[in-house]
């Protein structure tokens, strides 16, 4: 019987395990870009060659005009504006006017935010203005749905959930997000 029975458990030396794991960890740390797929969404209008030019008559009061010139200066409803952040309240007031102020919109359905930039406007400025315009609408929807703005954006990104969809439709009813971005000149 050559089989000698050894006493004591046979152990694999695992002290280098941490080193191996560290090496892998460092590899993934270096190659990683943490998934970043957030941004401002935008639905573009159809191909201009395929839509016929139709003159749509709109009342001046329903349109909230924002112009940005090539030196990033704002002209809002024919008056200069320095602070971009003021836009949000102005837009909310415009959309939710319900005919009270004769200068502002008749009702939210007819209200349009018209945004026009210049070819020399910086992308940074455009994003700032567009952010405020979308933010104003999100604020309105969120308030109607009884949630915070951040929560609203989260639930409106996932409409596959029927609860979200119901809330989404309810809040948006009668208030379409009409932000029109004109081609810059």
């Amino acid at each position: 019987m050559a089989r000698s029975k050894r006493r004591g458990a046979a152990e694999i030396n695992s002290s280098s395990m941490a080193d191996i794991a560290f090496l892998l960890l460092i590899f993934f740390l270096v190659t990683t870009t943490i998934a970043n797929d957030k941004g401002l969404t935008l639905q573009l209008p159809p191909d201009p060659d395929q839509i016929q030019d139709v003159d749509i008559k709109m009342k001046e009061r329903n349109i909230f005009k924002i112009l940005i010139n090539s030196s990033d200066k704002l002209l809002v409803e024919n008056e200069p504006l320095n602070d971009v952040h003021k836009l949000r309240e102005m837009i909310k007031k415009h959309v939710l006017n319900y005919g009270r102020d004769p200068e502002l919109s008749e009702n939210p359905e007819k209200a349009v935010i018209s945004l026009k930039a210049n070819r020399g406007t910086s992308y940074d400025m455009f994003i700032a203005v567009y952010n405020e315009a979308q933010g104003a609408y999100y604020d309105i929807y969120a308030q109607k749905a009884g949630v915070t703005n951040a929560k609203w954006r989260e639930l409106s990104s996932d409409l596959s959930n029927p609860d979200n969809k119901a809330l989404y439709d309810k809040a948006r009813e009668g208030i379409p997000m009409s932000i029109s971005i004109a081609e810059p000149n």
Partner: peptide, 11 residues
């Protein structure tokens, strides 16, 4: 990349 507040996630 510029900064903004009203971000939404892509599905």
């Amino acid at each position: 990349v510029p900064q903004a507040t009203e971000l939404r996630k892509l599905q």
